[in-house]
């Protein structure tokens, strides 16, 4: 499948991270938390108000805003 940004993945979908961008502090934070190229992520749910979202990465649950997830490009599995 084609590549898309993480915030666009539907609940339950997984994908492999292709690239992580964003301004330096955000990019660094994402990378430190384990969101880096080659890693598999899975969308668990969106918050009741529609934002932020919860993903599974490296075996733990991470919450991030959709605006932040938009800087993560994934290849949908």
């Amino acid at each position: 499948m084609s590549s898309q940004t993480l915030d666009k993945l539907p609940v339950g979908a997984s994908g492999t991270v292709l690239d992580v961008g964003g301004e330096p502090a955000l990019q660094q934070r994402l990378l430190e938390m384990g969101v880096l190229p080659g890693i598999e992520v899975k969308v668990v749910r969106f918050a009741p108000l529609g934002d932020p979202m919860e993903i599974k990465v490296m075996g733990y649950s991470l919450s991030l805003r959709k605006a932040e997830a938009a800087h993560v490009t994934v290849e949908r599995a």
Binding site: L30, M33, E54, L62, S63, R65
Partner: peptide, 8 residues
């Protein structure tokens, strides 16, 4: 814009 990356 402070990143809001939060471990659950």
């Amino acid at each position: 814009v402070t990143p809001f990356l939060l471990e659950l």
